[in-house]
Amino acid sequence: MDDKAETRDRILEAAGRRFDHYGYNKTTMSEIAADLKMSTGNLYRFYPSKLDIAEAFARAHEVEEDAIMEGIVESASPAEVRMREFHRTVLERTFNMIDKNKKLFELAQAITQERPAYSNRRLAAERVYLEKILKDGIEEGSFDPCDNLDELAEMIQCATMKFRFPQLYNCFRIDMLRRELEGTMDLLYRGLLKR
């Protein structure tokens, strides 16, 4: 790892500690720089804004999430099982992450509101996984054929959005969300079944 990459990693670690303790809104670039014993000007050379740091922080956590999702999508289970497991995993991971650290909610909100391109890119990546499951379900003979898998994956995302974004969890308990997700998946599965 070169010096720049190492410094970027150190910045993300320091920012992560601040975000965890004080929250995104109460963290400043000068505080992150002070924690690293560097000038604020030097910090701006690596990240032009606190939002850039937050996005880089979120991207670093994508790697683990993507590995988990790929494991589900590539498993030998039937497509229906993988579709349910995919959505259960998204719900459980996101809910537990926010439930353990309420300050992450602030960071997620900032990125979603101020960087819609980031959220759209993540949704597009998720659709690729859903398309693979749908394609496999069609090939297995359990799902009805479809001419536009991308659009179908997008509609599944729309139907399950409540279980994807922590901003919507404010007034819900995990047991309620699990029950609602299972009911939603039952409806979706009935709609996907080959007639």
Rank of each mutant, 00 (worst) to 15 (best):
M1V: 02
R8T: 07
I11F: 05
E13W: 00
R17D: 09
F19K: 04
F19W: 08
D20C: 07
H21M: 07
H21W: 06
H21K: 14
Y22W: 12
Y24M: 03
Y24K: 04
Y24P: 00
N25R: 11
K26E: 11
K26P: 06
T27D: 06
T28A: 06
S30D: 12
E31I: 07
D35P: 05
L36W: 07
K37W: 00
K37Y: 06
M38S: 00
T40N: 10
T40D: 12
R45K: 15
F46L: 14
F46W: 07
F46E: 05
Y47A: 06
L51V: 04
L51I: 10
D52S: 14
I53W: 01
E55Y: 00
A56G: 08
A60W: 05
E62T: 09
E62H: 15
V63M: 14
E65Q: 12
D66S: 01
A67C: 02
I68S: 02
E70P: 03
G71P: 04
G71H: 00
S77E: 15
P78E: 13
P78G: 11
A79N: 03
A79Y: 05
V81K: 15
R82P: 10
M83W: 01
M83C: 03
R84T: 14
E85G: 06
E85F: 00
F86D: 01
H87W: 08
R88Y: 09
R88H: 14
L91A: 03
L91C: 01
L91R: 02
E92N: 10
T94D: 00
M97F: 11
D99R: 13
E106N: 05
Q109C: 12
P116E: 00
P116G: 03
A117K: 12
Y118E: 11
R122S: 07
A125F: 12
V128S: 04
V128L: 09
V128Q: 12
Y129W: 15
I133A: 02
I133K: 02
L134H: 10
D136F: 02
D136T: 11
E139N: 11
S142L: 11
S142R: 13
F143V: 01
D144T: 12
C146F: 01
C146T: 03
C146R: 13
L149V: 02
D150E: 08
E151Q: 12
E151K: 08
L152E: 12
A153D: 04
M155P: 06
I156E: 05
Q157T: 02
K162Q: 14
F163R: 01
P166T: 05
P166I: 06
L168F: 13
L168M: 13
L168R: 10
Y169V: 08
Y169F: 15
C171L: 10
F172S: 14
I174Y: 05
M176F: 09
L177H: 09
L177R: 05
L177S: 03
L177V: 05
R178Y: 11
R178D: 10
R179M: 08
E180W: 07
L181G: 04
G183K: 02
G183H: 01
T184C: 11
D186T: 01
Y189S: 14
R190H: 02
G191T: 01
K194R: 13
K194Q: 08
